[in-house]
């Protein structure tokens, strides 16, 4: 008797759960307003990327053309593909001591897999992800980018 009631309860539970699934997809079918696809080349002017989108590595600069990179090289060590190269320089500061500053922070976009380890491990939050994604170029040398802008300097108060 118990097995018979289990048989019928299985049957009706199965039907109700199948119907629940069909209701969900049926609701999607009758509400085409929920379509999330972006019609890319047509909506290029109005396209807005999500903030979490990983387009490329950038180094944010403030209005005084200052960045937060101390040239410690942690990003270079952490990069699994060797797509970051840092060329540092030693210049005397106000006290006359030699201090390390970056000369060039080189980012090879062609080797980057956008794993985000450099952004995550940067102790001074100098790196970030940009939203730019149209990277196709005819010369691969153009994929090697210098992230610090010419004439930029280290933001002093950023280091705590």
């Amino acid at each position: 008797m118990n097995s018979i009631s289990k048989y019928f309860s299985d049957l009706f539970k199965g039907i109700s759960s199948l119907w629940a699934g069909m209701r969900v997809t049926g609701k999607y079918f009758v509400s085409p307003g929920q379509i999330v696809t972006q019609q890319y080349p047509e909506n290029r002017a109005t396209l807005k990327m999500e903030p979490r989108f990983k387009g490329e590595i950038i180094m944010p600069h403030d209005e005084n053309n200052q960045h937060a990179c101390t040239g410690c090289g942690i990003c270079e060590i952490n990069c699994p593909n060797g797509s970051i190269e840092i060329i540092t320089d030693r210049v005397p500061n106000a006290d006359g001591k030699l201090e390390r500053v970056i000369d060039k922070h080189i980012f090879h976009l062609s080797m980057c897999t956008f794993c985000g380890l450099c952004v995550k491990t940067c102790p001074s939050d100098a790196l970030a992800f940009g939203q730019e994604f149209e990277h196709a170029v005819f010369d691969r040398h153009k994929l090697t980018k210098v992230l610090n802008q010419p004439g930029s300097s280290l933001k002093k108060e950023a280091k705590k």
Binding site: Y28, F29, I35, V36, T37, Q39
Partner: peptide
């Protein structure tokens, strides 16, 4: 088309 609309695609 039906598959696309059910999956919120075009």
């Amino acid at each position: 088309k039906v598959c696309a609309v059910i999956q919120n695609r075009v």
